[in-house]
Simulated scan of single mutants.
Amino acid sequence: MTNTKKFPKWLGITIAVILCVSLIVGWKVYQVFLGASVTETQKYLYIHTNDTYENVLRRIRTENIVKDADEFDYVAKAMSYPSAVKAGKYRLQKGMSNRRLVGDLRGGYQEPVSLRFSNIRLKENFAGFLGRNFEQDSLQFISLLNNEAEAEKYGFTKDNFYTMFIPNTYQIYWNTSADKVIERFHEEYKKFWTAERLEKAKAQNFTPVDASILASIVRGEALHNDEMPMIAGLYLNRLKKGMLLQADPTVIFANNDFTIRRVLNKHLTIDNPYNTYKFKGLPPGPINMPPIVAIDAVLNPSAHKYIYMCAKEDFSGYHAFAETVSEHLVNARKFQKALDERNIKK
């Protein structure tokens, strides 16, 4: 007769309890590491240069970036993140796991800033724009834009440095230092000024800076891109004849009053190198940041004999062009009458 021992009931219960606990712990660990954690309260997590792990964890708590900050903390420490904090702008997606979020942060896998700009009038406006898009503030950017040594480093003067910034779309990391952001713009500037563009500028006896300065005036005059080559051709005609440019946008810039809608004689008396009613040739710098279409209009101007223009009286934004003073005076009287009828005095 075979003697078999009966399996102890207590042992079976113990094994069952251990299995249940293991499953519960395993499920909990899975949820902590791989379960949905990131909320939709924030689109990005910004980690500043010199931030410590404590700074990051505090931000995650206060901005409710994850469902449970203590669980994030546990995963972060398990993955050795506290000693590997990297600054940057990190995109957050609802439902991301703690493991993925920590992996992105630890690896420095930030999303670059997609920077697109155009029609920014002044350096101060541009500095403000950059300050809103990067870790460095606007004061750091304007100090560089107004720095003679910084301008000379790239072959410009403080007055014409603004011509180096070509409106386009740029991919730059949020925590890039201000000087490196400027350097990135210079790289784009060099790519923009191709051999073909340089040759066209040379044909006008222009440097790239000259072309950009005139383009800023064309941009100031034109409300419609399709008219830019005509306006560029007119100003080139004036330059070739040795005439004053007499560009109203430069007078407005010289007076530093961009509310002026009607340039009057009192505005023309200002003793400022940007007043092209008093000073021959191009002003020392641009009066705005000219778009690519305006620069290309200067490089590819319309061929004509016009040397005068006046805004059309229909306020369409287009101009009436003339070759002679008498023709121009007829156009000017029409526009002045239209201004008077609308009671536009300044």
Rank of each mutant, 00 (worst) to 15 (best):
M1N: 06
T4P: 11
P8G: 07
A16L: 15
A16E: 09
V21M: 13
V21K: 07
I24Q: 02
G26L: 10
V32Y: 09
V32F: 14
A36Q: 01
T39M: 11
E40R: 00
Q42K: 13
Q42A: 13
Y44E: 05
L45H: 03
Y46G: 15
T52Y: 14
L57D: 04
L57Q: 06
R58C: 12
R59E: 03
R61M: 07
E63L: 15
N64K: 01
A69T: 10
D70N: 09
Y74F: 15
M79K: 03
M79P: 07
S80W: 02
V85Q: 00
K86I: 06
A87E: 03
N98C: 13
G103Q: 09
E111C: 09
P112T: 02
P112E: 01
S114I: 07
L115D: 02
K123Y: 12
E124C: 05
N125L: 02
G128N: 06
G128I: 04
G128W: 11
F129P: 08
F129C: 14
F129Y: 15
G131F: 12
N133G: 06
Q136R: 01
D137F: 14
D137G: 11
S138Q: 00
F141Y: 09
F141K: 02
F141C: 06
I142E: 04
I142D: 08
S143E: 13
S143P: 07
A151Y: 08
A151N: 01
K153W: 12
G155V: 12
D159Y: 12
D159Q: 02
F161C: 08
T163W: 11
P167D: 01
I172K: 03
N175L: 00
N175W: 02
V181C: 03
E183H: 12
R184E: 00
Y189P: 05
Y189V: 07
K190G: 08
K191G: 09
A195G: 12
E199V: 04
K202A: 08
Q204T: 05
Q204R: 01
N205I: 04
P208S: 07
V209E: 04
V209H: 11
E221P: 14
H224P: 12
M230K: 08
A232Y: 12
A232G: 01
G233N: 00
Y235C: 10
L236R: 05
L236P: 07
N237K: 00
L239Y: 15
G242T: 01
M243C: 11
D248C: 09
P249G: 09
I252F: 15
F253Q: 06
N256K: 04
N256M: 04
I260Q: 05
R262Y: 11
V263L: 06
N272F: 15
T276V: 11
K280Y: 15
L282D: 00
P284N: 00
N288G: 14
P290F: 13
I292P: 09
L299V: 13
S302R: 01
S302C: 01
I307S: 00
F315D: 06
S316C: 05
G317A: 06
H319R: 05
V325N: 06
V330K: 11
L339I: 10
